[in-house]
């Protein structure tokens, strides 16, 4: 079963939050670019960026939540996660996107696009340890 969404949004998605990249550079969350994530993962020893394509977006039994099915990485592993509708994902080449951009903007002041089936989101996996 998908993991339950947290009751409230984490503070780092709030517009103006200061984010530290792997090279030490500080950026505001709304200024992050795709390259920031890719370069930070490259500098990280144990984290790997994956491409996760949105396959389905379904209603959830939990109020204000959705179940998103992703196809993750080169093996296209199917992963379902349950998140609040305002939870933002970072889409390659596009930026922050959520299932309900209006609510994300209202709660977090973070400008978002509408997350749709076919969007390719940035996700992380642990590098396999040999």
């Amino acid at each position: 079963p998908p993991a339950s969404p947290s009751a409230s949004m984490p503070p780092y998605f709030m517009r103006g939050s200061i984010i530290q990249l792997a090279d030490g550079e500080l950026k505001r969350v709304e200024d992050l670019k795709t390259e920031d994530f890719i370069q930070s993962a490259e500098l990280s020893g144990d984290l790997k960026i994956d491409s996760s394509t949105v396959e389905r977006i379904d209603c959830s039994h939990t109020p204000d939540a959705v179940v998103i099915q992703f196809s993750v990485g080169e093996h296209k592993a199917q992963v379902r996660v349950e998140v609040l509708v305002e939870y933002p994902f970072f889409v390659f080449g596009q930026g922050w996107s959520s299932c309900c951009p209006d609510k994300t903007t209202q709660l977090l002041e973070l400008s978002c696009a509408k997350l749709s089936v076919g969007d390719v989101c940035i996700s992380l996996t642990l590098r396999s340890i040999r």
Partner: peptide
């Protein structure tokens, strides 16, 4: 005296979800 207000700094990987299949082969 006014103490300087500390601004929280979050690591970049906090913003990215870990998506891994629940079953491994």
């Amino acid at each position: 005296n006014v103490e300087p207000r500390s601004v929280p700094v979050f690591p970049w990987h906090s913003l990215v979800p870990f998506l891994e299949p629940s079953q491994s082969n």
